[in-house]
């Protein structure tokens, strides 16, 4: 029991890390809260469903495809919404409402196009039979999803810490105005980060049918809360803190489900409030000087 909860927790932790990562990247770079995050995840999930059913594309292939499509979608969306928002008086607060509106639009369009029913992809696309890890057997789909999440996280690490664009992105995260003053094209850097953030959500969506159960157009709200729990535990605005947050969240979730199953649904909310009150900067956060 204990070993199973630990290992399944790690597998889910890696996946939840991917679920939260895009939201955190967008918040870190632009200081805006993308409440439509869960809806982009939902779109990724429906992409995987339709591509699998129509052309039989394996979800791993879909993951690469949605990455390209959503990054390309994110760029124009950024220029349409964000620069205008950031000229307002309180962009952080207004962003919650603006992206709530966007999430309503996406949810409505998805309901109109896909219909409100639950959809799922059979787990056997990744081969039948469980995978054995340290004596515990896990569904193959879980392991593939966890590996894909690990690869995506690694990609973000390389992007942020090993490329010139990532260097500029981190500069914008630390101080937007100073980055602007040193001549960095803040809008371009932010737009790319925004696109990558959406793409990460969509990739997480591709694996959602295996990790979160069946998908439907209104699943976004729940995902948002879970993503917030993950990134607040790690540290809001620090994409790598999300790895820790995801693993803490995943392991606590499987432990709750194993030992106190009827209270497991409370976990994200309680964890979120507890961390916000006790250590608002998150487990890996730096002290922030205010005023």
């Amino acid at each position: 029991m204990l070993e199973y909860a630990l290992i399944a927790g790690l597998v889910f932790g890696l996946y939840f890390c991917l679920v939260g990562l895009g939201l955190n990247l967008v918040f870190g770079v632009m200081r805006i809260v993308n409440l439509a995050h869960g809806d982009f995840l939902m779109l990724g999930a429906f992409g995987a469903f339709w591509l699998f059913n129509l052309v039989g594309l394996n979800p791993v292939g879909t993951a690469f495809l949605v990455f390209a499509v959503f990054t390309a979608l994110g760029l124009p969306l950024y220029y349409l919404l964000v620069p205008r928002l950031q000229r307002a008086k309180d962009p952080e607060m207004l962003s919650i409402i603006l992206f709530f509106g966007l999430s309503q639009v996406i949810e409505a369009l998805a309901t109109i196009v896909f219909g409100p029913s639950e959809r799922s992809i059979p787990g056997r696309v990744f081969g039948t039979g469980p995978v054995h890890i340290l004596g515990q057997s896990l569904p193959a789909a879980w392991v593939v999803s966890a590996i894909a999440s690990g690869v995506a996280v690694l990609f973000i690490y390389v992007y942020l810490y090993r490329t010139r664009l990532g260097y500029l992105t981190r500069a914008v995260m630390v101080h937007r105005e100073e980055a602007l003053a040193t001549g960095i094209d803040v809008d371009r850097v932010s737009a790319i980060a925004f696109g990558i953030g959406l793409a990460l959500a969509a990739i997480a969506g591709v694996f959602a049918p295996f990790m979160l159960g069946s998908v439907n157009p209104s699943m976004g709200v729940d995902i948002n809360i879970q993503s917030f729990a993950v990134i607040v535990v790690g540290s809001l605005g620090n994409p790598l803190g999300t790895i820790l947050g995801g693993i803490v969240y995943g392991i606590s979730l499987t432990f709750m489900q194993t030992y106190f199953s009827s209270w497991a649904n409370l976990l994200p909310y309680v964890l979120l409030i507890f961390i916000l009150l006790v250590r608002p900067s998150g487990l890996l956060g730096r002290e922030v000087r205010s005023a």
């Binding site: 919404l81 207004l94 509106g101 966007l102 309503q104 309901t111």
Partner: peptide, 12 residues
């Protein structure tokens, strides 16, 4: 929901 979402975005 669609109209409502667009209204909210336009408003902000």
């Amino acid at each position: 929901q669609l109209i409502y979402g667009l209204l909210i975005m336009g408003l902000v």
